[in-house]
Write a protein that binds this DNA or RNA. Structure first.
Length: 423
RNA sequence: GCGGAUGUAGCUCAGCUGGUAGAGCGCCGGUUUGUGGUACCGGUUGUCGCGGGUUCGAGCCCCGUCAUUCGCCCCA
C-alpha cells in the first residue's frame, strides 16, 4: 500500500475501464462523422477569461470550481472546465467565422473542482458536438439527432430519455425571467434556502429545485410559453416539427433551464435513472451570443456535451479485450528464424506475441490465461518442414500449416485474433 | 461548501464482549523442457487508510485527518 495516491477526484483508466472509454469516444467520433462533423482539438488550458466571460460569473463552475493558476508572467490560466467556450474561441482565433457553418466534434479531459461522487470527478472526460453558424431549427434537430444516434449505437438509448425545452430568444427570456423574479419575490417566505440563493443568482434554476415546498410554488409559476415572442414561438414549433420528422421522441420539460448562462432557445438533456443523482448523460442547447462574447461576430450556434464516464458506466458490456496469437517455441529452435516469423506476421497486421521465458507448460498456461486465440508451435521439426503447428485455443483443434500458406493468409486466418472490440 | 455510511492481503470479505491477524480467489513455483483453460503439491502477500489518545494491552473504544461512497448544491 503505497503512500502515493492519485489526486482526489482523478482516476486511472486501465483494462476494461479504458476499453469502455475508448469505445464511447470512437463510436462518437464515427457517428459525428456521419453527420459531417470534423474533430477539433483545442488546448487543455486557456486564458481564464475564455471561461469566466462565457459561462456567467454566477455559475458555480466559474465562481468556485475552476482550476485556475497564474503563469510565470502572472497571466491567469485555467484548466478547461468545459469544451464549448474554447471551441468558440478557436473559431474566432482561426478566422473561421468567414466559413460557416462549422460542424465540430471534440473529445478530451475537463477539470472542475467539485466534491467527487459516482459519475462525477475532478478530471473527467467529455465528448461534444458544436454546430456553429446556423440559426435554423434544423441545425438544432441535427445536433439532437446526432446525440440520439450515438446513444442508440452505444446501446444505452433505452435507459435514457430526451427532455426538451425552450428558453426563447433574448427578449422572451428576459421578460420571463423578470416575471419569475417578481413571482418568487412575492413568496420569499416559502422558498427554500437554496432557492432564495438562486433567486439572486439564477432564478430560472428554481424551476428544477428538488425541494418539496419549492415545487408547490413552481407549479403556479409563470410559464415560458406565455412569454415567447412570435419569432421564438416559430422557432420552437419548427424544432419540434423537425424532430418529429427525424422520428425522435422527446418529452417537453419546462424546467430544463441549464446552468450555464449562454443558452437561449433550445435546451435539452438526455437523462437516466441509473446513475443516482448524476442522471444527466448528455446535455446542450443553443448559444447564439457566445461567439460574440469571444470577440467575434454574431454566430448562432447549437451544441451539446456528454460525460464519457457516465456513458461508459451505462454500457451493458465492456468491449472484449483483444486476443493475441502466441508463438510457443518447442525445444530450442533457431532464434533468427523465430524473430523473422514474428515480424512477418506483425507486418501483416496480426497481433502476435511471444513469451519471454518458461517451460512449454508454463508458456501454454500463460497463453491460456491471456486468452490467446491461437498458439503457433515452432520447433526444429517444424522449421525443417517449413511449417507451424497451429492450435486453436478455443476449440483445442490443432493442424499443421505450411509457412507459405500461413504467411499468405495470415490476415484472414487470424482476423479475429487481432480484432479489438473497441474498433 | 453541507449531511450520512465505509476504509483489514492484488480482489471479495471474516475477525465474537479490546489480548499484537485469517479464508476464498488471484499470483508465483512444481507435478522431469512437444501442449493451456481441469486436478494435485508447495509458496508469497499486510506498518488492519494515516496521526494522536484511552488502556497493562486496540483491527476492535475516543479524537483528528485522508480517501471512497450515498444524498444536497452544482453539473457531463
Amino acid at each position: 500500500m503505497s503512500s502515493i495516491q492519485p489526486v482526489r477526484g482523478t482516476h486511472d483508466l486501465i483494462g476494461e475501464q479504458q476499453r469502455r472509454h475508448a469505445h464511447v469516444v470512437s463510436v462518437a467520433r464515427h457517428i459525428a462523422g456521419l453527420y459531417g462533423f470534423d474533430e477539433w482539438a483545442t488546448p487543455i488550458f486557456e486564458e481564464t477569461r475564455v471561461f469566466s466571460r462565457s459561462l456567467g460569473d454566477t455559475s458555480d463552475v466559474v465562481s468556485k470550481e475552476m482550476y485556475s493558476f497564474n503563469d510565470r508572467d502572472g497571466e491567469s490560466l485555467t484548466l478547461r472546465p468545459e469544451g464549448t467556450a474554447a471551441i468558440c474561441r478557436a473559431l474566432v482565433t482561426n478566422g473561421l467565422t468567414q466559413s460557416l457553418p462549422q460542424k465540430v466534434f471534440y473529445a478530451g479531459p475537463m477539470f472542475r473542482y467539485e466534491r467527487p461522487q459516482k459519475g462525477r470527478y475532478r478530471q473527467f472526460h467529455q465528448i461534444g458536438a458544436e454546430l456553429l453558424g446556423a440559426a435554423e431549427p434544423l441545425a438544432d434537430a441535427e445536433a439532437i439527432a446526432l446525440a440520439h444516434q450515438l446513444l442508440t449505437a452505444l446501446g444505452v438509448a433505452d435507459d435514457v430519455t430526451l427532455e426538451l425545452n425552450t428558453l426563447g430568444d433574448t427578449a422572451s427570456r428576459d421578460a420571463w425571467r423578470a416575471a419569475l423574479v417578481a413571482y418568487f419575490s412575492g413568496h420569499k417566505d416559502k422558498l427554500s434556502e437554496d432557492s432564495l440563493n438562486r433567486l439572486e443568482k439564477n432564478p430560472l434554476r428554481i424551476l428544477d429545485s428538488k425541494d418539496a415546498g419549492d415545487r408547490v410554488l413552481v407549479a403556479d409559476a409563470p410559464m415560458m410559453e406565455d412569454f415567447l415572442t412570435p419569432e421564438a414561438r416559430a422557432f420552437w414549433d419548427g424544432l419540434r416539427r423537425t424532430l418529429d420528422g427525424f422520428g425522435i421522441a422527446y418529452k417537453v420539460n419546462p424546467s430544463i433551464v441549464r446552468g450555464l448562462d449562454y443558452y437561449n432557445h433550445t435546451t435539452f438533456e438526455f437523462v437516466t435513472r441509473r446513475l443516482g443523482s448524476q442522471g444527466t448523460v448528455l446535455a446542450g442547447g443553443r448559444y447564439d451570443g457566445l461567439v460574440q462574447q469571444m470577440g467575434g461576430p454574431e454566430v448562432p450556434s447549437i451544441g451539446w456535451a456528454a460525460g464519457v464516464e457516465r456513458l461508459a458506466m451505462l454500457l451493458e458490456e465492456a468491449p472484449a479485450a483483444p486476443r493475441s496469437v502466441v508463438i510457443v517455441p518447442v525445444g530450442s529452435p533457431d532464434e533468427g528464424a523465430l524473430l523473422s516469423i514474428l515480424q512477418t506476421l506483425r507486418q501483416q497486421g496480426v497481433r502476435v506475441e511471444i513469451g519471454y521465458r518458461g517451460s512449454l507448460r508454463k508458456r501454454m498456461e500463460r497463453a491460456g490465461k491471456q486468452n490467446a486465440s491461437h498458439v503457433l508451435f515452432l520447433g526444429d521439426d517444424e522449421l525443417a518442414r517449413g511449417s507451424f503447428r497451429v492450435k486453436n485455443m478455443g476449440t483445442g483443434e490443432e493442424a499443421e500449416v505450411s509457412r507459405d500458406t500461413l504467411f499468405s493468409n495470415a490476415a484472414s486466418m487470424f482476423a479475429k485474433a487481432g480484432e479489438s472490440a473497441a474498433q
